[in-house]
């Protein structure tokens, strides 16, 4: 499958810190906004010359198609994200995308409940997915679980509340919401939902996704995982981003994924 590897140099509209070392960068990119779907990502360069050399992938967080705006939520960890943090309104940012082959596929079963489980910068694509589902049908059932080590690291609670979604928060130290991990909250949610149709969508740190995947397989609930591995090209041409599947195939995360079903991935 060819990908839409178009390059855009677009103006930044805003760039705000939301919690420590995490920012939301909004830019004017109408072509990207028109194509972007939940699970897509953008390959960003802030490179001055060849440093850093490669682009880095970031999930699409919010999309405003009328205004032609998109945003990314990023955590400052290295050269690209430090460069992104310095961008001010009016500066330009260099993007390629939207990228991604298999993205989130909403459960279309009658009365299905969509359970989002996110951690860290895995939360933003799930917020996008929830908003898309709600704008297609306001009555969509959404459960949202967000996990973090500590309350100061929890993301997107207010953004979700604005969209009418009350997220269940879990913190490992109990500083906010339920004490424990997302899987503890997920067990509760799945028990509440009983035998009704449910799909879990998960994006977050790999150990979290592994645990959520195991739980969903154990209780036999379909689960879609947005897998994170290093992606040097993001376009399916370098073969560096491979993921081993349970059936023995070794596929590219960027264009054969990044969304895989639990059970499909060999951990």
């Amino acid at each position: 499958m060819p990908v839409s590897a178009q390059q855009y140099l677009v103006p930044v509209i805003s760039n705000d810190e939301i919690i420590a070392d995490h920012r939301v960068l909004t830019c004017y990119a109408p072509e990207v906004a028109a194509l972007a779907r939940p699970g897509h990502f953008l390959n960003v360069s802030v490179g001055d010359g060849y440093d850093p050399f490669l682009r880095k992938p970031f999930s699409i967080y919010t999309v405003n198609r009328e205004r032609g705006e998109i945003s990314m939520l990023f955590s400052i960890v290295g050269a690209t994200t430090r460069g992104m943090a310095k961008k001010r309104a009016g500066d330009e940012i260099d993007l390629v995308g939207p990228l991604g082959g298999k993205i989130f596929q909403p459960d279309t079963r009658e009365g299905a409940t969509h359970v989002m489980v996110g951690g860290g910068y895995g939360v933003p694509p799930l917020v996008f997915l929830s908003k898309e589902l709600l704008s297609a049908a306001a009555s969509t059932n959404i459960e949202f679980i967000i996990g973090a080590r500590h309350k100061d690291l929890l993301l997107c609670e207010a953004e979700l509340a604005e969209a009418g979604v009350t997220a269940r928060m879990t913190t490992e130290d109990g500083s906010h919401g339920m004490r424990g991990r997302v899987t503890d909250a997920l067990r509760v949610v799945l028990a509440e939902l009983g035998a009704s149709p449910v799909t879990v969508y998960c994006c977050g740190p790999t150990p979290m996704m592994h645990a959520v995947s195991d739980l969903c397989l154990e209780v036999d609930v379909p689960c879609q995982l947005s897998v994170e591995v290093g992606m040097p090209c993001g376009m399916g041409v370098c073969m560096a981003c491979v993921v081993d599947l349970a059936d023995g195939r070794r596929v590219r995360c960027c264009t054969d994924g990044p969304v895989f079903a639990a059970g499909e991935v060999k951990w």
């Binding site: 850093p52 490669l54 290093g230 040097p232 491979v242």
Partner: peptide, 21 residues
């Protein structure tokens, strides 16, 4: 091909060990 990581960034370039997958 080879196990991952297969590509790392270096100064003005990359090192790859895809292993001809």
């Amino acid at each position: 091909g080879n196990p991952t990581p297969r590509i790392v960034e270096t100064s003005s370039g990359i090192l790859n060990a895809i292993g001809l997958q």
